[in-house]
């Protein structure tokens, strides 16, 4: 039934239209952004079409190095938290009843799809003085008086971890659901408690997927855009925020384009790294 290719060139027609759409509206916009990154900025949204490397030269300024430092710090910590929470959670989830699994998968998908504007609003409310954990802590007698916990770096980390956790769960779910039940059974027969079986057998077994998911969450977190603005101070802004700030508020399109190319290069290098780790893991 499966043919290697259509009999006549006309048979390619169905896929030509989607191919055209993807090239015209993805490859070409990409190319135009690459071109833009080499133009000279005139200010106020205007630019001159001459070849210059000045936008890339600005990438090594102390200000952008500090932005980069913040972005990577946030992404690193969030990826770490998301894995530490997400891995055991997913492990418990795949061993739960099917109904429980479906329920939490719906919740995770929903949190992941919701607008960062809504998540940011929810977390800023949760961390506020009048409606959140401040009230709870005061009622429990933990603090003398309710206080606000945002904006701060901690609030950014909490908010971004909150959206990265479902991403971690959905990345790990297919992998962990393929664990043979025999493995845990075997370690139990040999006298290990479930907790020891988890830490001494399940976790070391999944070293490769853990590292791969860590890098994927790192990339995902670099894209976080509204949460650092809502929950943090300008010193907590990440590269994504600075890119859109340059494009929309400073109207410096060439520089915003150069920053995007930079972010893309970092992302592609990280994805290549993941593929490499995966291949090595498959061999081992």
């Amino acid at each position: 039934m499966i043919q290697s290719r259509p009999r006549t060139p006309l048979g390619y027609l169905p896929i030509l239209l989607p191919a055209f759409a993807l090239i015209a509206f993805y490859i070409v916009p990409f190319g135009s952004m690459v071109g833009m990154s080499f133009f000279h900025n005139l200010g106020g949204g205007a630019y001159e079409q001459v070849f210059t490397l000045e936008n890339y030269a600005r990438l090594v300024s102390p200000f952008f190095l500090s932005v980069l430092g913040t972005s990577f710090e946030v992404a690193f910590l969030v990826a770490l938290f998301a894995i530490v929470i997400g891995f055991p959670f997913t492990y418990l989830l795949v061993n739960a009843r099917r109904g429980t699994q479906v329920f939490w998968l719906i919740v995770m998908l929903s949190v992941l799809s919701l607008s960062e504007a809504i998540i940011g609003f929810a977390w800023s409310t949760l961390l506020s003085r009048t409606a959140g954990i401040g009230v709870l802590f005061e009622a429990l007698g933990l603090t003398e008086k309710a206080q606000s916990y945002a904006p701060s770096l901690g609030a950014v980390l909490a908010g971004v971890t909150y959206i990265a956790m479902p991403y971690a769960v959905l990345l790990l779910y297919p992998i962990l659901s393929r664990i043979e039940p025999d493995i845990e059974q075997a370690s139990r027969t040999l006298g290990a408690s479930p907790l020891r079986a988890f830490f001494n057998v399940i976790v070391p077994m999944h070293r490769t997927p853990i590292v791969v998911s860590f890098v994927m969450i790192f990339v995902f977190t670099l894209g976080s855009y509204l949460l650092p603005q809502i929950l943090g101070r300008p010193t907590n802004w990440t590269l994504s925020v600075v890119i859109s700030d340059q494009a929309l508020l400073q109207s410096n399109m060439p520089f915003a384009a150069a920053l995007s190319i930079f972010l893309m290069t970092v992302t592609i290098l990280l994805v290549l790294l993941v593929t490499l780790i995966n291949r090595k893991g498959a061999k081992a």
Binding site: Y26, F30, S32, M33, V219, L222, M253, A256, A257, S260
Partner: peptide
């Protein structure tokens, strides 16, 4: 090609569209 846009941080795709349509 269809899987690419979703892999990159959305701000990159957004910048591509912004330059293209401008």
């Amino acid at each position: 090609l269809g899987a690419m846009p979703f892999l990159l941080p959305p701000v990159i795709t957004a910048m591509g569209f912004l330059t293209f349509f401008i």
